[in-house]
Computed example of a mutant assay.
Amino acid sequence: MGSWLLVPADKEKALAQAASAGADVVVLDLARASSEDRKQHTRLAARDFLMSHREQVVAARKFSRWVRIGPIVGMEWRQDLDAAIEGGPEGFVLAECVGPEQVKELAAALYELEGRLGIPNGSTKIIPEVGGSPTSALQLRSFAEELHPRVSGLAWDPALLARSMGARRMRGPGGLWTDALAHVRALVLLTAHARNLEVIEAPFRNLREPEGMTRAAAAAAADGFTGMLAIDPSQVDDINKAFEPSQEQIAEARELVGVFALNPNAHSIAFRGRYVGQAELSKARALLGEG
Rank of each mutant, 00 (worst) to 15 (best):
R205C: 10
G153P: 04
A217M: 11
G131S: 05
D157E: 11
G122H: 02
A192W: 03
D157Q: 14
L161A: 12
I200A: 10
L106W: 01
R116W: 10
W177N: 07
L160P: 01
R169M: 13
P173G: 00
A180R: 09
L147R: 14
I119A: 05
L113T: 02
L187G: 04
G132E: 06
W177L: 14
Q139W: 14
I119C: 04
F204M: 03
L176W: 15
I127L: 15
R195D: 02
G115A: 06
R141H: 12
L154H: 03
E112S: 10
T214L: 11
A222Y: 12
I200F: 08
A107K: 01
T178N: 09
G122F: 00
S152G: 15
L181K: 05
H148E: 06
A218G: 05
V188Q: 13
A137D: 06
E145R: 14
R195L: 02
A194E: 07
V188P: 00
I127P: 02
R168H: 13
R168G: 14
S164M: 06
G172I: 03
E129I: 13
E146V: 01
H193I: 13
I119D: 07
V199G: 07
A159C: 01
E145W: 12
L138N: 07
A155E: 04
L197F: 03
I127M: 15
F225I: 05
M213N: 05
A216Y: 11
G115S: 01
A182N: 10
R205P: 06
A108Y: 06
A186T: 06
A182L: 09
G212I: 14
S136M: 04
S142I: 07
R150T: 02
E201I: 02
V184Q: 15
A192S: 07
E211H: 08
R205F: 06
P173H: 04
L110I: 03
A162K: 08
S133T: 15
A220P: 13
R150W: 07
